[in-house]
């Protein structure tokens, strides 16, 4: 292969008893790309993302990050990766800065200075006052911002997002995608599972539609309009 995508799935297959969660899934996400995984509940989007985190070991096939097989080097491949699930759960009794300090230290092995931590939190959209507040009282949107700050502190160039904006109000969702655009502009490769077709078209560079563990369609977002994407999605869900 001439180029190697930052994120790559090669024939990923995972079964749970009789359920096929992933069925020979192939995909690749390059630096500067936002790849949106679409599909009904239970289509296998989260399972795919979890394979990149070594939370799930595929039965066959492999997940690769920067050319390394995740299952062979789970710790090494996590070095450049950030994960933002639907709700970024943090230590409720600690402040945003303290949470970030812990995860950044876990991620980089060195303890960042407070000004650096504050800088990342502010870049992610929190105020300085909020940065010192207990995370226990944070809204979902504020938690996602701490998640982004972790990615920034880590200098991650591979982002795995599992429905990161579901449940966010439109403004928070908009802000989140703004940050995503910034990370992408810095060369990050983003894999995002989402049910939001509008956002997928807006901030995604490519979309893949999944059904029962298989990728049934894949296209560039600049080749298709909003209405056409919805049409295509519904068509795949029906047959």
């Amino acid at each position: 292969m001439a180029y190697s995508p930052l994120l790559e799935a090669r024939g990923l297959t995972k079964r749970y008893g009789d359920t096929v969660a992933l069925d020979a899934l192939d995909l690749g996400v390059n630096s500067g790309e936002v790849y949106c995984l679409l599909g009904a509940n239970g289509a296998g989007k989260s399972t795919a993302i979890n394979c990149f985190l070594d939370f799930v070991r595929p039965d066959t096939g492999s997940a690769l990050i920067g050319g390394s097989v995740v299952a062979d080097d789970p710790i090494g491949t996590k070095q450049r990766l950030a994960y933002i699930p639907e709700t970024v759960m943090l230590y409720g009794n600690l402040s945003a800065v303290e949470n970030l300090e812990y995860f950044a230290t876990l991620a980089t092995g060195t303890r960042p200075a407070r000004p650096d931590l504050l800088k990342h939190l502010i870049t992610a959209g929190l105020t300085e006052v909020q940065a010192d507040q207990r995370v226990g009282g944070f809204s979902k949107g504020m938690r996602q911002k701490v998640g982004i700050a972790i990615a920034l502190a880590k200098g991650a160039d591979v982002l795995l997002l599992d429905e990161p904006t579901s449940g966010l109000d439109p403004k928070a969702s908009n802000e989140f995608h703004g940050l995503l655009g910034m990370l992408r502009a810095h060369g990050a490769a983003v894999l995002m599972a989402t049910h939001d077709l509008f956002r997928a078209k807006e901030s995604g560079t490519r979309v893949g539609i999944m059904k029962r563990g298989r990728k049934v369609a894949e296209l560039r977002t600049d080749e298709i309009g909003h209405a056409d994407l919805e049409q295509l999605y519904l068509q795949h869900m029906h047959d």
Partner: peptide, 10 residues
């Protein structure tokens, strides 16, 4: 849910 964020670190 904190475990997922912890275990996403290297």
């Amino acid at each position: 849910g904190t475990l997922a964020i912890v275990l996403a670190q290297p």
